[in-house]
Nucleic acid binder design. Structure first.
Lengths: 221, 221
DNA sequence: TCGCGGATTGGACGGATGCGCAATATCGTC
DNA sequence: GACGATATTGCGCATCCGTCCAATCCGCGA
């Protein structure tokens, strides 16, 4: 394998780990898998990472924080809190075979036994909640929302979305993405004192930020 | 190991698998673990189960359906739909180190790759939703609840609870069991047209049906 | 052009994995 | 008491695991 600078190689390893984790699941991703995915030797992985736990945590972080920043960028770019909220639902609700959300399921399950994974998962969950809470506070400030407890409301909306999306990803046919969006936006409208349908309006279609491509992009810049 | 009838031995294997899965996680439970847990040989497990997938599915089913029937029994025994709903929240909300809910996390993550686990997980989730929907319909019928879509409302309440509980179990300190119950009951009150605090009243204390003991009970009748 | 340091290799290590099979032990039944 | 059925054993098989390390290769500065 051609030589690379320390940072580039780390990136390449993480990217390969993501590709494998998407295919086989976080818990079943092995050092050899990652090495053969990028056509190098297994020893190389341990030259850059202390343990497999760290590799998996980095892989999960790469995917999850990419989703978070992409969504966050779109949300802060929105002109009104209402528009930002619509962006949130559009980008967060998973598609049918959303490998990105499947990684979340893997991470939550692994969190109990892998400290590095738990730390990342917890931090990113907190950041999502903070992002949503910020939008709610902005909406309350400018009068579009009515909400007594922005922090709690953010947790409720986020968790409802997680719980419903989980059914879609884990079980497939139980409920669908459209149900997830419709039910969550409905709950959010009540949560924020919005009229019925204020959020529902045609935000269920197209242009997702996650799960669009079945394969992660190539590593490096 | 002393001889047992075909049914008893199957039960014993499943019980041992539960004990190991609680300790090590569903995904990391191996044939040898189960065998040594009950002091027998690994060949015995393969004599009773086609594959490890089936063993894990049976182990998960044992725990999860036990919770479901215990909770269901208490709910139908309740005198009013409101009381039944309180039982639901009290029994479903997980404690801090709830191994039973951790198994749900494991199952949801494994569902994508283990058909037998997926089938059980999906079925039990549907049964929980059906149980809750039945209570809501009963409450609507006798006038205590107001709800246009009992099925959707049941999914929302259940999923909100799952999403919040997930944070407690996977991340520990992010939010607590009290938050989970308070926020979910609050959402349920709005969902079912109940006055504030109708459900909250002191249902957060004591007497859980799940996660009470750190170890599963013995097999057999 | 040489040498050095770091990137990279590839396999050794002890142990674990699911699964399958021949051998054995122990029962109920005649 | 002997027999047949079957529950149970214990190990073999091929493959995999994470970790570790000596050897090798290569590019860059001198």
């Amino acid at each position: 394998m051609s030589r690379m600078s320390r940072g580039d190689r780390r990136d390449a390893i993480v990217a390969a780990a993501v590709a494998v984790a998407v295919r086989k699941g976080l818990a079943s991703t092995t050092v050899r898998d990652v090495a053969s995915e990028m056509g190098t030797s297994s020893g190389l992985i341990h030259h850059y990472f202390e343990s497999m736990d760290d590799v998996l945590a980095a892989a999960f972080k790469r995917v999850a924080s990419q989703d978070l920043t992409a969504s966050g960028r779109q949300m802060v770019a929105a002109e009104t809190p209402l528009a930002a909220l619509k962006v949130f639902f559009r980008t967060y609700a998973p598609a049918d075979k959303d490998w990105s959300f499947q990684l979340w399921l893997d991470a939550w399950a692994e969190a109990a036994r892998r400290p590095a994974v738990r730390a990342i998962s917890r931090q990113l969950n907190l950041e999502w909640q903070g992002l949503l809470e910020g939008v709610i506070r902005a909406g309350v400030a400018d009068g579009t929302f009515t909400c007594a407890e922005p922090a709690a409301a953010a947790w409720r909306i986020l968790s409802l979305l997680d719980g419903l999306a989980l059914q879609v990803i884990a079980h497939g046919t139980t409920i669908g993405r459209d149900d997830v969006i419709a039910w969550t936006t409905g709950a959010a409208e009540r949560e924020l004192g919005l009229p019925d349908g204020a959020l529902a309006a045609r935000c269920a279609r197209r242009g997702r930020a996650r799960g669009t491509s079945p394969r992660p992009g190539p590593p490096g810049a």
